[in-house]
Amino acid sequence: MAEFLTAKELAIKVSICLMVLVAVMCLCALVGTQNISFEKVFAGPGQKAGDNIDYEIFIYRLQRVILAALVGAALACSGVVLQAILRNPLADPYILGISSGAGLGVIIATLSGITWTFWSGSPIGLFAFAGALITVWLVWYIGHFTGKSQVTSLLLAGVVINSFFSAIIMFLASIAKSEQVFSTIFWLMGNITEKSFTVLLVSAGCILAGIIVLFALCHRLNVLALGQEEAKGLGVDAARTRIFAFACAAFVTAIAVSLSGLIGFVGLIIPHGVRLTFGPDHRQLLPLSAIIGAGFLVIADTIARIIVAPAQLPVGVITAIAGGPFFLILLAKYSRKVSWSK
C-alpha cells in the first residue's frame, strides 16, 4: 500500500511549523541592542505610554519581525511556484524581471524628488510595486509573443529585460546625486524596517490571500511540473493554470518587494531545502516553504539588526552570506543522494 499525503497529516505538519515560527518570532523580538526582560514584556502594556518601556520596545520590534515573516513567506512561495511553472530548479521570484522593474520604479521615484506621502510613508514602495508588475507583464507578453516553446522564451525574455532595465538603473544612478543613489542602493540590497500595523495588516491580507489561492493550485502545479503535454493528458489546462499561478506569484512578490526591497536567496534556497527534506509534492511544499521562509527571514533580519549594532546591515546581505554556503551544502548533499539512488 502506498502512502498518501492526507489533509490531516498536512494540517498537523503545518500547525507544528507554525508554532515553531511563532516561538522564533517572539524570541527574535526579545533580542536586540536594548536588553528587555521577558517578565516585563509578559506583564503587558502599562497604564500610559512610557510605563513599560520593555513592552513598547517588544511591540516595536514585533512590527519588524512580522514584516520579515510576511516577506519571507511571500518570496518562498513565489519561488516554489516559479520553479514549478518554469520547470527549472534555478528559478527564483526575480527571474522574470520583478527585481529590475521594481528597482527602476524606485530609482525613478527617488530621482523625481516626490514629496507626497502614501500611508504616512514614502511612496517608494508603491513605485516598486507598479514597476514590478508592469515589467512582469512585459516579460510575459514578450515571452508569449516570440516563441512556441513558452518556457524558454519566457526565461530569455526575463533575462533580456532584467539586464536592459539594470543598464537603465546604472545609467540613472551614474547621473544622479550621491545621496539619492545611496538610498536606492540600500533599497536594492533589501532592507527591512519597521512598518505601521495598518501597512502590515493590509500586506498580510494580500499575501495570505495570494498564498491560499496558490495552495489551491498546488495539485495542478505537480502535474504542470511534468510539462505541458503531460499536464494536458492529465486533465490540467496548462496555459490557464500557468498564467493564473504566475499572476498570483508576481502579485505576492511585488508586495514583498515593495515592502522590503530586493532580498535575494530566500526564494531560491527555501523551496530547495524544503523539497529535499519533505519531497516535491507542491501541496506540502508550498505551505511548509512559506512558514520556513518566514522563519528564515525573521532570523536573518535579527542577525542584521544586532551583528554590527548600533548600526544595521541590510538583511539582503545576511541572506546572501548565509544562504550561499547553505545552498552549496544542500547541493552537495543532493548530488550524493542522487548518485546513491542510481
Partner: peptide, 30 residues
Amino acid sequence: RQEFVPVFDFTVAQMVSMARTPYLGTFGFE
C-alpha cells in the same frame, strides 16, 4: 508517452496519484 525522468524527484506513488487529478476537489486531496 515515452518514459522520462521529471525535473523534480516525484516518487512512484506520487506520479501514479497524478492520474486522479481530473477527479480531485479544490485543494487536491485524494
